[in-house]
């Protein structure tokens, strides 16, 4: 691990410490393992596929639950595939939603191929260009502290891109049955009765 880059697990640990009762959607690959490793709970919806879908899933949830905070925790490749969703989110201006991108500048799950984010593509600038008012790029501990403050204040919608080392933590897998994860999440958010007997 290079000395001056943030380590993803430390970053996620710090963020989850101020999560409160925020609902969390994780994007496929390492962000899902990170969330499962550090803050496993029923209010996590772990995505294992559907690349590009984490942020718009978060948007549908944020619109349906305007009184809850929604965090989307994803990677740079996943977000880049769904980059148009920055515009879709900006149009709605959800006051309860943050997209947090763990940006290691690589496609980690497929063999660490270089991603455009390491070669000039600036996801925070793309979010700003789409109309997201609060955007941040985080490169060190001090900037991470600023992000923590912004998350605590709830200055949303927010897109925060956190530059991290390519190092990964131990692979901790959440339940892989999507139906189970969906029903667990809905039961936690809506109560078991409404979750299992929708009308």
């Amino acid at each position: 691990m290079s000395k001056n880059k943030l380590f993803r697990r430390d970053v996620v640990t710090k963020l989850m410490a101020v999560r409160g009762d925020a609902l969390c959607i994780s994007g496929l690959g390492s962000p899902t393992w990170d969330l499962a490793a550090i803050d496993h709970r029923p209010e996590n919806f772990y995505i294992w596929g559907g690349m590009g879908g984490a942020a718009p899933t978060g948007l549908g949830l944020a619109l349906a639950q305007p009184d809850r905070t929604v965090w989307v925790l994803t990677g740079d490749g996943e977000q880049l595939m769904g980059v148009g969703s920055f515009s879709t989110i900006a149009l709605q201006q959800p006051k309860n939603m943050a997209v947090i991108v763990l940006d290691n500048e690589h496609y980690g799950e497929t063999g660490m191929q270089a991603a455009p984010t390491g070669r000039g593509t600036d996801l925070a600038a793309m979010a700003a260009g789409a109309g997201i008012g609060n955007t941040m790029t985080i490169r060190n501990e001090a900037e991470l502290d600023e992000l923590v403050a912004v998350l605590k204040k709830g200055q949303f919608p927010l897109v925060a891109v956190i530059k991290i080392d390519v190092a990964t933590g131990e692979t901790i897998m959440p339940p892989r049955d999507g139906k189970f994860v969906k029903n667990t999440f809905r039961s936690a958010v809506l109560g078991p009765d409404k979750a299992l007997h929708p009308n």
Partner: peptide, 23 residues
């Protein structure tokens, strides 16, 4: 709530998120 999309697959994900939140 109308949600115009930049591409159709976003809508599939938005619908899933809405259902997660009870809508």
């Amino acid at each position: 709530q109308t949600v115009p999309l930049t591409t159709e697959e976003e809508g599939i994900a938005v619908a899933a998120g809405a259902w997660l939140g009870g809508q």
